[in-house]
Amino acid sequence: MDRRVRVRNDMPPGHIRTPAYLRGKCGVIERTLGPFPNPEQLAYRHKGRPLALHRVRFTMAEIWGDAAETPTDTVEAEIYAHWLEPADAA
């Protein structure tokens, strides 16, 4: 996976640990953790598929655009691998 990634811009129903405010946003992988069982499956008592968990760093400018308080400040969040795609994907 490229270090620069985009969070999938999907809104599926269910127990999702990817915050909505980060969907569709681009960031850089800070470190990779896991594998951890997929919480979207665990929540419904299925066996969780082991997934890499990436800590992704986003700038405030990327998340909030012109409304950013300080554009260069950053947010880091843990995003499961199946929620990430290469940042240059269409």
């Binding site: 640990r17 990817t18 915050p19 953790l33 896991g34 951890f36 919480p39 968990l53 800590r55 760093r57 300080t70 260069t72 400040d73 950053t74 947010v75 880091e76 969040a77 843990e78 995003i79 499961y80």
Partner: peptide, 12 residues
């Protein structure tokens, strides 16, 4: 001073 917010979204 750079501010870095950590959103504790999953297992950490």
């Amino acid at each position: 001073t750079h501010i870095r917010v950590h959103d504790s979204t999953a297992d950490m």
